[in-house]
Design a protein around this nucleic acid. Structure first.
Lengths: 214, 214
DNA sequence: CCAATATATATCGATTTGATATATATTGGT
DNA sequence: ACCAATATATATCAAATCGATATATATTGG
C-alpha cells in the first residue's frame, strides 16, 4: 500500500525532546548535548544550537523531566550535568509514539549547483570539490568507528549514512567532468519544468488518495 | 587537497535570496514561490514558508530588487506577480559568489529509527515502511519528468536526487528484516560511541589543518 | 597583549516556522 | 443551509530556533 507523503505528520521533535533523547543514553551537560548535535552522529539528521538547548533544559528542569547536578572540574568552569527522570522518560516515549514529520533538508551547495550557470567556473569547481571531499571525509571517519555495543537503531543509522554518503560520493565523482564542463545557457525550460514537477506531484498524490478510498 | 568541513562558511541563503533564485527563472507570485519550496524540486534541498516569503518579498520590493504587478484572475483572488530587476540579479549574483554553508538535515524519522528500542514494533514498522514508500514515490515521480530544455544545474541536481533516493531505497529494502527483527537492548555503548565519534571528528580535522600548514 | 582554541553557561536580536485570518471559488456530505 | 475539504491568493502573529555575543577558566602561539 503506497502512501506517497500522506503518512507524515506535523513536527514533533522540539529541542526539549531532542535533549531527552540524548539524556536517555546517559547524563550529559548542555554543552555536550550541543556538541552531539553539531559534531556527533546526530548532526547528520538533526540540529540544535545553544540558543534553544539552554532554554529547553530550563523548561525540562521546571517540569521535573530532568534533574541537574553542578560539578566542578580542574582547569575548567563548573558544569551542570543533566539526568533524565522517570517523568522525562515518559515524555520522551510519548513523543516517540507520534507520527513523525517528513524530512527537511537545507543545502546551500545544492541550491548553488542548481544555479551553476550564474557561478564563475573557479568558484563552482571549488564548491563541487569541497562537497565531494566532505562526503569522503564522513565515510573515512565512519570507517574508523567500532560497532561493538551499539543498539540496532544506532547500527542502522550508521549503515544508512554510509550507504547514502557512498552513493553520493560516487555520483559526484562520476559526474564531475560532465557537469563542470557542461554547456551553459540551456535552462530555457527550468521554470516550466518546476511547474510540471509540481503538477505531477499533485496528480500522483490524488491517484494515491483515490486508491485509498477503495 | 582534502579539507574535511573547513571549506564551508556561514549561512548565506536567506529567504530573500531564495526568492531571487526562483525569480531568476521567471516571474512568479508569492504563493507560487512557496509552492516551489514545498512541492517542487527545491523542496528536496531547501525550505521556506509563507511567514518568511511575504516579508522577504516586501523587503525586496522596498530595495528595488523586484518589481510587482497585480493581476486579476477569473474565479480566483488577484495575484501579485513579482519580477526580478537588474539590481535583484546583481544581489543574487553577489550571494552566489560567497562560500556556502554546510548542509543541514532534519529527519524525525531517522531520529526515531535511532531510538528504535523505545518504539512499539507496529509503530516502528509503520514508520519504516512509510519512509520506504516515500523514497519510492519520489523516484517514480522523477522518472515521469522530461529532461528537455533543462540547464546543466537542473539536470545535475535531478540526477543527484535520483542517485541518492535510489541508494537509500535499496538500503531500506535490504535491511528491513534485519533491522525490524533485530535484538533489542544492546545499546550499552551508544553514548560512548557518540563521544568517540566526536573525538575522531576533531582529530581528523586537526590532521587536516596540520596538513594545511605545510 | 591578543587571537585562537577548548570547555562551560547563558542571553539576545534576527529569522523562520507553523498556525491563523481573510478572500474567491468548487465539491461533497450531512 | 451549513460545514469541511480543497485550491488559489495575500498577509500576519506568537512560538521556536538560529547565530552571534557575553562571560568564565585555561592553554598555546604569534
Amino acid at each position: 500500500m503506497s502512501m506517497g507523503l500522506a503518512f507524515f505528520g506535523a513536527r514533533i521533535m522540539d529541542v526539549k525532546t531532542l535533549c531527552l533523547g540524548v539524556l536517555s543514553l546517559g547524563d550529559a551537560s548542555g554543552y555536550e548535548i550541543r556538541k552531539m548535535f553539531e559534531e556527533g552522529p546526530f548532526a547528520h539528521f538533526h540540529h540544535a544550537s545553544f540558543g534553544s538547548i539552554y532554554p529547553a533544559l530550563s523548561k525540562l528542569l521546571e517540569a521535573g523531566q530532568v534533574s541537574c547536578t553542578v560539578e566542578s572540574q580542574d582547569g575548567r568552569p563548573d558544569k551542570k550535568v543533566y539526568a533524565m527522570t522517570e517523568s522525562g522518560l515518559e515524555a520522551f516515549r510519548t513523543a516517540l509514539r507520534k507520527t513523525p514529520d517528513d524530512d527537511k533538508v537545507r543545502s546551500e551547495v545544492m541550491f548553488m549547483l542548481f544555479f551553476a550557470d550564474h557561478l564563475e567556473d573557479e568558484h563552482l569547481t571549488e564548491i563541487y570539490d569541497a562537497y565531494t571531499d566532505r562526503h569522503r571525509f564522513f565515510i573515512e571517519k565512519m570507517e574508523e568507528l567500532s560497532s561493538e555495543g551499539l543498539s540496532r537503531g544506532r547500527k542502522f543509522v550508521r549503515g544508512f549514512g554510509m550507504a547514502f554518503y557512498k552513493s553520493v560520493l560516487t555520483y559526484l565523482e562520476e559526474n564531475r567532468e560532465a557537469f563542470l564542463r557542461g554547456a551553459k545557457g540551456e535552462g530555457w525550460r527550468d521554470l516550466e519544468s518546476i511547474r510540471e514537477c509540481m503538477t505531477i506531484t499533485n496528480e500522483a498524490e490524488k491517484r494515491l488518495n483515490a486508491g485509498d478510498d477503495q
